[in-house]
Design a protein around this nucleic acid. Structure first.
Lengths: 349, 349
DNA sequence: CAAGCCAGCGCAATCGTTTGCGGGAAACGA
DNA sequence: TCGTTTCCCGCAAACGATTGCGCTGGCTTG
């Protein structure tokens, strides 16, 4: 028989009856926290019965009664962006060991979707939110914060809000990138920043300005990309080249933007790193397989997620502890897209 | 005040009181399915009250009462494997429009983790499972199937079980790859297969055997990789080279295995595609950025997920319809890692 | 021997929704 | 005017687990 039955799933009551005790006793016997209120012998009987019946507690009933769900929501823009899977796994790695589960939702950076997804999470009684989609101005987060929703931000920050956040140390990452280029002898370094409406874009761009200024280099070689994408990176690089060819290195706002540079170099017959050095940001997978392998700033994404999860657990456990944000160190990964500049400037196209 | 209150979340009762009706009426007014049982005027009042209070139905209470959860479980080995995010999004894209939500769990291909995760999903009353981790022999799936759990398999099949599955058409993909190489003039084509304990590995390897046989080419150039990884691909390529250098092309079981070939070629000073042509499988992201860009077989992962979701919805709606499996077409993506063979065989190392 | 204590267990209320059922009132036909 | 239908709506019982409280019986203690 391939279709034997809609096997009636056993409830606590069934277990209790099988063990010859009351449901209350069965409940206590099954819960390690309350098991010592029950005689060892009875507890054993109950657990055996549960095992035999294949009993699984109905988590809906449990969270209805306890007003807890052992679930946290994880809000990300898009899972197919390779940045996020490691973050997800990082979050899960610490939450799971604490008995929590993770609900993942994708917002595609759409405000309406985001609102809807978060509402759905809240109706599922999540005990906290980890949010990796925050824009600088973000009314929704403000509302949630005022309603006392416990949450932690990843990778971005929101203006004027005291929400705990964990981010990569973009500033020192960018500084290391600039310093690396300067050490190679570059003096005219450009920056293709991400959208300045994101905190990441803004932080990295400011860090770049500071870094070049500190080294006494010109700080006017900057273009803002419309999105964090390869296409926008290429467009920005074209815009930069239309303005000037007097630069020998580029710090891209992230890896796709750097890939956009690769595309334009191929178009124009420019050689990387001989004509132009490029540095990306994030250290996405497979960058070491590119031609040339991309020098980039590695951000500890897994640890970012793990730390955010730890902070969230703290917030849940002690709601009125001060919210502290943390910065995780980023590190430069030197590969083949950076080299000493040629003696001359770029050839005119 | 940053810590105003643990705002008491409004319940249906609050809404009902605010609207001056009974909770039953409020419930019916809020549910589009039952709204016509209520006078338009009253329904409006209730909805307004709900809006004003920011009411969100408690989904735990709801699923306790209705014994439904509007949730399906999605079981994958590892989210950081770039194969899976598109599948996830594909699943979500069709499930969401039907009001379902998706629970994602990672098993890391560990049998114990998998069992635990699936139990946790079941205790959450998921209405169905989409499983992308099936091994050929898989006792757990057998049990679940006998218990009447509705589920759909992605990308793999399980021996002897009539579980609906949606998979890429690996056989024609491999055939296309072999045919492409033969058309280029290759006559000695090797295959670095994935583990033969997976249905994917087995199907592709058999397809390779058939394809070369149909073209009258030798079928003895095969090595099995221990895992679907770059390292194991490299090891397999080394093993192959230790055995013979008399081949001019390689069909890899998947993209990372092909990358492993790249690594060994770099070690040995072999040039791809001039000395050896390579074809991967899956068309992971960024393969077009490699040097050389990897020719590969593209599998429609998003559509795989979407179709699996559709099938699962069908199974949920009409449990006793025959389970049909579907095959989605794979297509060859020709890039730079394949070319006509040199006149001579490989140089001796 | 009586009083007190405690360990072990059962009772019953409760969480927030849904839903079958029944009742009151309005509307209708006769 | 009265009976009957129809339309809205309220009543109350679930769903399955948790938990404060109280009861019981066996034990210690003075």
């Amino acid at each position: 028989m391939t279709h034997p039955n809609p096997v009636p799933v056993p409830t606590l009551r069934d277990v209790a009856e099988a063990a010859g005790v009351h449901t209350a006793t069965a409940s206590r016997a099954l819960n390690p926290k309350t098991r010592q209120q029950i005689s060892a012998e009875t507890a054993r009987r109950v657990m055996r019965a549960a095992q035999a019946l294949g009993y699984q507690p109905n988590s809906a009933a449990r969270s209805l009664k306890t007003a807890r769900s052992s679930t946290v929501g994880l809000v990300i823009p898009d899972l197919t962006n390779p940045l996020f899977p490691p973050i997800v796994r990082g979050v899960e790695s610490v939450l799971e060991s604490d008995g929590y589960n993770v609900w993942i939702v994708n917002t595609d950076n759409d405000e309406e979707r985001e609102r809807a997804k978060i509402e759905s999470l809240r109706s599922r009684q999540v005990e906290g939110l980890i949010i990796a989609t925050a824009r600088l101005e973000h009314p929704l987060l403000g509302q949630l914060h005022e309603q006392g929703v416990t949450m932690v931000l990843i990778n971005r920050q929101v203006d004027n809000l005291r929400i705990p956040a964990v981010t990569g140390d973009d500033a020192t990452g960018v500084a290391a990138a600039v310093r690396h280029l300067a050490d190679l002898g570059h003096t005219r370094i450009a920056h293709l920043s991400g959208p300045l409406s994101t905190s990441t874009g803004r932080v990295r761009s400011r860090a770049f300005r500071h870094a070049v200024r500190d080294l006494g280099l010109p700080g006017d070689l900057m273009v803002e990309c419309g999105h964090w994408s390869e296409a926008d990176g290429a467009a920005a690089m074209r815009a930069l080249l239309a303005r000037t060819t007097d630069f020998t290195a580029v710090v891209a706002g992230n890896d796709p933007i750097a890939l956009g540079c690769y595309d334009v170099f191929a178009e124009r017959g420019l050689s990387c790193p001989h004509d132009v050095s490029v540095i990306g940001f994030n250290d996405m997978p497979f960058l070491d397989k590119l031609r040339p392998p991309l020098t980039t700033v590695a951000v500890p994404h897994h640890e970012l997620g793990a730390e955010a999860a730890r902070m969230l657990l703290n917030c849940i456990d002690e709601p009125d502890r001060a919210a502290r944000s943390v910065l995780l160190p980023a590190s430069l990964v030197v590969r083949g897209s950076t080299a000493a500049p040629r003696a001359t400037v770029l050839p005119e196209p």
